[in-house]
Write a protein that binds this DNA or RNA. Structure first.
Lengths: 344, 344
DNA sequence: CGCCATAGGGTATACGTATACGCATAATAT
DNA sequence: ATATTATGCGTATACGTATACCCTATGGCG
């Protein structure tokens, strides 16, 4: 007997039991220093006994802070199939973990680039900030990103970390990664290195990787051949097509650096169909180290990005922005994973 | 001139502009029938002009409904690496999409089985219901699930759909899927079929798959050999170890049905090391159709679950439960994907 | 011994929305 | 013509928390 045990306890219940007022409970639980240690301990004990949890909605409404972040995935415009880049999915783990660690909830949503996602989360007070994830046409993005900046919406973006990028960006050192790949190919004696991936301003990350490759080649005294660059988006089909067209062009090449593993896997299929041995005839390097990369035949040499660090950095940077600090752009180093496709 | 454009508009702003009271705005936007068509149209127009969105927190606080679902992933107790089963990740897409379609937000969280996740989401009013996803020791779960039922928390679970399972469950027809796999192996002439996967009550789904295999064998007049069943959790390492021990046992077998693709990939490696040809010496079938399954050598025959349907069904079933209806357990049919590992 | 700072906590109120009621006007029924 | 019922909307209030402000003791100080 006493109070009804089924109703969820409120701060008033605790206040009553502790013999204090409701605001004191709020202060105690939020760590205000104007509550004596004894009172606080007592309140915390009672709260634990009652299994009390702060009502998120009331708290957010009053404080205008949600303690929630929103994660927006941008899908490649594949019509219906949910072909999300596995690389981003693998980042999900570290992002959720870091959010939990910092006491934030994570809202997740898949978006088409052309939607009005840029207004959906800021005004309805659903999140304190937004994490943007996904390859895609950067130019398409631009105006929406500018809109976010204008509205002072807090957000971080995963992508190419260049000076002209809008807002706060965290990303891998794509130029450095491209250099790693290029240097490795040069090291195993390749001089005619093709690049598969859109190297235009629409895909800054791929552009950076290509730039890194070129830099490594020049450092070895090799002039990159622009004819050995073929556009491709991150999909197996696109990689297959790009490799096919390269083969059809009749140009000679003894190595391929693909801008993503999916592209590389498509290219590998095209090479096999052309009876070219990998790596003997054409060495191959991918990017992302997706799980399938270690299952291909031959297994795929690739560049691994630091996804654990990436997730943590994204969350931390966003939280700093939310706190009012101006967080700086950050680049993470990448690592070359050597496998059979470059083992000569 | 007029009102300050930067402040987020509230229902009062709209009411003022429309010349009505705030509750009328609320009613109009929520679709109450006690608002005239003209008034409603006017309010909707103004709302659109002001870029008004309902404040989620206030709305949830008042109505005690959040229009948010929580998705809880249970990780296999891998110490630190975020090795989430790719199968569940692939369900993420359809779940988020279905949530969006129904006007619900999706909170996501990774959990260790032993945490107090069963209290974290219900009391703080963060979600209207919970979707539980993840393999894992079912027995460990049980008491927590019972607790959820007792607290009348709305939830759906992906898993084995059996009569004794607690709460609302949606899952593949694992027995039927096992039968499919077994029938196919029998069809290609195999009679000594091993099963890799924990077939105990701790893993009801694996148990069901094994039961299906046995049923198919018996239907073909073959007595299943209990000695050809080796426990394994869903990981490559575990599959490798299980296959190794089976090989070491000296028992003869000409086919393996693995309870998951990861197990199958591990087994494939063990077979290769033992100089057994796949499929000639040992045919192999996996389960899940993860992306890597089409990249192995030989490519892996596997059972594909209907993940798109699964996500939709999970969300719909949960929403029905939330609405007060008692949704029924549901099973989805699975499909056999034939590849090289069973092509004799 | 009066004065002021400080600790500790109470009082009042706002956050923005969604309902329970009540009250007109208009439309029907009798 | 009066009684009855819908229709359409306004009034009042509650949801549970967090903060601005105010008040009371105490202790230190001159």
């Amino acid at each position: 007997m006493g109070r009804q045990p089924s109703a969820k306890p409120t701060s008033f219940d605790i206040a009553y039991l502790a013999g204090v007022s409701q605001p004191t409970v709020s202060r105690a639980l939020r760590g205000s220093k104007s509550v004596s240690a004894a009172t606080r301990a007592n309140i915390e004990r009672i709260a634990r006994e009652l299994n009390y949890t702060v009502d998120k909605n009331a708290s957010s409404l009053r404080s205008q802070r949600t303690h929630t972040l929103a994660l927006l995935f941008f899908e490649d415009p594949t019509p219906d199939e949910s072909m999300i880049n596995p690389f981003f999915l693998s980042m999900l783990g570290s992002i959720t973990r870091q959010c939990a660690l910092k006491g934030y909830d994570l809202l997740i949503s898949f978006q088409q680039m052309h939607n009005d996602w840029h207004v959906a989360y800021q005004d309805s007070h659903r999140s304190d900030g937004i994490i943007l994830l996904g390859y895609g046409d950067y130019q398409l993005y631009r105006t929406k990103l500018e809109h976010l900046v204008e509205m002072d919406t807090k957000f971080v973006r995963w992508g190419s970390v260049s000076d002209d990028s809008i807002g706060l960006t965290v990303g891998s050192d794509n130029v450095g990664a491209g250099e790693l790949a290029g240097a490795h190919l040069v090291e195993i004696g390749r001089r005619h290195i093709a690049f598969l991936g859109d190297a235009s301003e629409h895909a800054p990350e791929f552009q950076d990787r290509y730039a890194g490759l070129c830099r490594a080649m020049r450092a070895a005294g090799i002039a990159p051949d622009p004819g050995l660059q073929a556009g491709a988006v991150s999909s197996e089909a696109s990689g297959y097509a790009a490799a096919k067209s390269l083969l059809a062009s009749g140009r000679r090449f003894d190595a391929i650096f693909a801008a993503s593993d999916l592209i590389a896997i498509g290219a590998m299929r095209a090479l096999a169909e052309a009876n070219l041995r990998c790596p003997q005839d054409v060495a191959l390097i991918g990017f992302d180290d997706i799980p399938a990369a270690s299952q291909t035949s031959p297994t795929l040499t690739t560049v691994m990005q630091d996804m654990k660090g990436a997730g943590e950095l994204l969350v931390d940077a966003l939280l700093r922005r939310i706190a009012g600090a101006d967080a700086e752009r950050t680049m993470l180093p990448a690592k070359l994973i050597k496998r059979q496709s470059t083992a000569v």
